[in-house]
């Protein structure tokens, strides 16, 4: 039937980046003898690797790579403006001090070693204090673990007027630069990361984990086109199979996507995948080789709701 032959025929062709990643994975398989035994990261370490900055475990080169444009800049502007307007129109409940934001997410399950297995899902729950300074979740033992959270900038800090895209970016920049200066990679090398990477990552995390007011959320959306290298991917999917449109940022190691609903631009989830080969060195276990194309994270936010105490479910 001609109609079926037309259906979704305009799907974008494979990007050069994805093609090279896929080819790299094949070549790696071709060149490597059967895979060495890969140790599974303890669950908490994985969770910290996600809740904290992704690049905590990785040595990243100092060179800032210009992200290949996936769509013209005009589309980033358009998506940012539409998402901002939708956030403003949607409004939101004003949290009381001392409250926590409960978030339930569906996640691709950890794979063997670093990265995730796209064929399996797990559900995670976490609580973030509305001041943004603490994060909590239940351990397998049943105990609630509470700790300070990255990026170290809180929803409350962002909500101080003036709430403009430039102002928020400069606050985030200052805090993340300071916290980065105090970090070292697990192989002892100093932690270097481009300003654009830090900014995108902070916004990505804030949107998924914190109770942001509509003004702050809108300003963050408007800030995204101000970060050089941020692009738009029109055809993304979260961990719950929901199709979306995404802001993406690619550094020299990985691409991260902030996925929004194409209807009302609500936050849906995140996706991260490596775009280059990398060997990760740990101080206390064997180095791990990650080929390009290794998925790092895939999430879908199922529920976000204010509660009075960490550990409480709505």
């Amino acid at each position: 039937m001609k109609e079926i032959q037309r259906f979704r025929a305009s799907v974008p062709t494979i990007t050069r980046e994805a093609e090279e990643s896929a080819r790299a994975r094949l070549l790696h398989e071709i060149h490597t003898p059967p895979a060495p035994a890969r140790r599974r990261l303890p669950r908490l370490a994985w969770r910290i690797a996600l809740a904290g900055a992704f690049s905590v475990v990785v040595g990243v080169g100092a060179v800032r790579l210009q992200a290949p444009p996936t769509t013209p800049v005009a589309s980033v502007q358009e998506l940012s403006e539409r998402a901002a307007e939708a956030a403003e129109a949607r409004g939101g409940v004003k949290p009381s001090p001392g409250q926590w934001l409960y978030v339930r997410e569906k996640l691709a399950a950890p794979g063997d070693g670093v990265g995730v297995n796209l064929d399996e899902r797990t559900t995670g729950e976490m609580w973030t204090s509305v001041d943004g300074k603490q994060i909590a979740w239940y351990q397998p033992s049943g105990e609630l673990l509470v700790q300070g959270t990255h990026p170290g900038i809180s929803a409350a800090d962002l909500a101080e007027p003036p709430i403009t895209p430039q102002e928020l970016l400069s606050r985030i920049d200052k805090v993340t630069a300071e916290s980065m200066a105090r970090q070292f990679n697990s192989d002892g090398s100093p932690h270097e990361e481009s300003r654009e990477q830090r900014l995108f990552q902070a916004i990505y995390q804030l949107m998924g984990e914190q109770a942001l007011s509509p003004e702050v959320r809108a300003a963050l959306f408007r800030a995204l086109p101000l970060i050089e290298g941020v692009a738009v991917r029109p055809d993304a999917m979260d961990a719950d199979g929901r199709q979306g449109v995404a802001f993406s940022y690619t550094n020299d190691w990985a691409r991260y996507e902030l996925i929004l609903s194409p209807d009302d631009f609500r936050y849906l989830g995140t996706y991260g995948v490596t775009v280059a080969d990398r060997t990760i060195r740990y101080t206390d276990s064997d180095p791990v080789f990650l080929p390009a194309g290794t998925p790092l994270v895939l999430s879908a936010q199922l529920k976000a709701h204010l509660v009075d105490k960490a550990g409480q479910r709505p």
Binding site: V11, T15, A18, D235
Partner: peptide, 25 residues
């Protein structure tokens, strides 16, 4: 690779297709 990706992307999404294309080969 291109045609496999195109077929999978039409069924699911380009994102799923990126990974499934690699897995196929």
């Amino acid at each position: 690779a291109h045609q496999i990706h195109h077929y999978v992307a039409r069924r699911l999404s380009t994102q799923a297709a990126d990974d499934i294309t690699a897995e196929t080969f």
